[in-house]
């Protein structure tokens, strides 16, 4: 149970920690605000799993998939809004801090609810509590290490390239989450299956450690469908050109603080 808890925690919590690393390197948030967002996200995820039974029976059994897909879509659009507010600081329609907090809450509900279901379902089993807490501690340690590394990587990018490169990294991450969520619609037959564009399992298997890591960071899929590739490219390129138009690349402020 210990190893399984670590694996499940890594799978579900890694995107949360990656987002934290990416966002905190770009938006200055106070410790109190961060704690509020984490606790709010956790509470809302608990509310979500309490409603998951009734959600599951909605839309002919596709309720959970639709709600998780919507959460991922919302996450992507909040990233777009955050990008807008970082590029156009003087005409932002919302403070970047609030958007960053919304992102943290959204990703905890979208990714954390799966682990909470496991935690909730197996907590009553004999000797589960100790193994689970130990597993969570180990998993959190690994995730935190990666988040810190990402934080410093993005901070270095920011000091070298201004807002452009860190924003691109965040956009790639959000687009990856968006295309991963498309499988949810395919598995309940709401989206037709399209043909596979390439098969790179021989290079990086989805099930391997690198496959997992790349899936979280950039949305890597060894056998992507045509619709996934199209949406992924559009989700990165279109907003990127919009940001470039909004503020010329050369005018991106270097080391600008909020």
């Amino acid at each position: 149970m210990l190893i399984n808890t670590v694996i499940l925690f890594l799978r579900d919590a890694l995107p949360i920690f990656v987002l934290l690393g990416l966002v905190l390197a770009q938006v200055r948030i106070s410790f109190n605000m961060l704690c509020t967002a984490l606790i709010s996200g956790l509470l809302l995820a608990l509310v979500f799993i309490r409603q998951v039974d009734s959600l599951g029976s909605m839309f002919e059994g596709a309720g959970i998939e639709i709600s998780l897909w919507l959460l991922n879509v919302a996450l992507y659009f909040v990233v777009l809004m955050l990008g807008h507010s970082l590029v156009k600081t003087n005409k932002a329609f919302c403070k970047p801090q609030w958007l960053a907090l919304a992102l943290i809450v959204l990703i905890i509900i979208a990714k954390g609810s799966n682990f909470l279901l496991y935690f909730d379902g197996y907590l009553n089993q004999a000797n589960a509590l100790q193994s689970m807490f130990l597993g969570i501690l180990l998993g959190a340690g690994i995730c935190l290490s990666l988040a810190v590394l990402l934080f410093f990587f993005v901070t270095a990018l920011r000091s070298r390239f201004g807002w452009s490169a860190p924003l691109l990294v965040l956009l790639i991450f959000a687009s990856g989450q968006l295309i991963n969520a498309l499988n949810l619609l395919v598995q309940v037959d709401l989206l037709p299956t399209s043909s596979v564009v390439w098969d790179s399992q021989w290079l990086i298997d989805d099930e391997s450690e690198y496959g997992h890591l790349l899936n979280v960071l950039i949305g890597y899929v060894a056998t992507p469908s045509r619709i996934q590739v199209a949406i992924y490219l559009a989700a990165i390129v279109l907003p990127w050109f919009y940001y470039q138009k909004l503020k010329g690349f050369s005018h991106f402020s270097r080391g600008n603080t909020l």
Binding site: G56, Y118, G121, Q125, V188, T193
Partner: peptide, 29 residues
């Protein structure tokens, strides 16, 4: 009496099936 998660990387499917309940997944072609 406990939930289970059906997961397959090769099928690209992932779904939690709650205790004492059923779930539907479409696979293929």
């Amino acid at each position: 009496e406990t939930p289970e998660e059906f997961e397959s990387f090769s099928l690209n499917r992932e779904k939690v099936i709650f205790a004492q309940s059923q779930a539907v997944i479409f696979i293929g072609p």
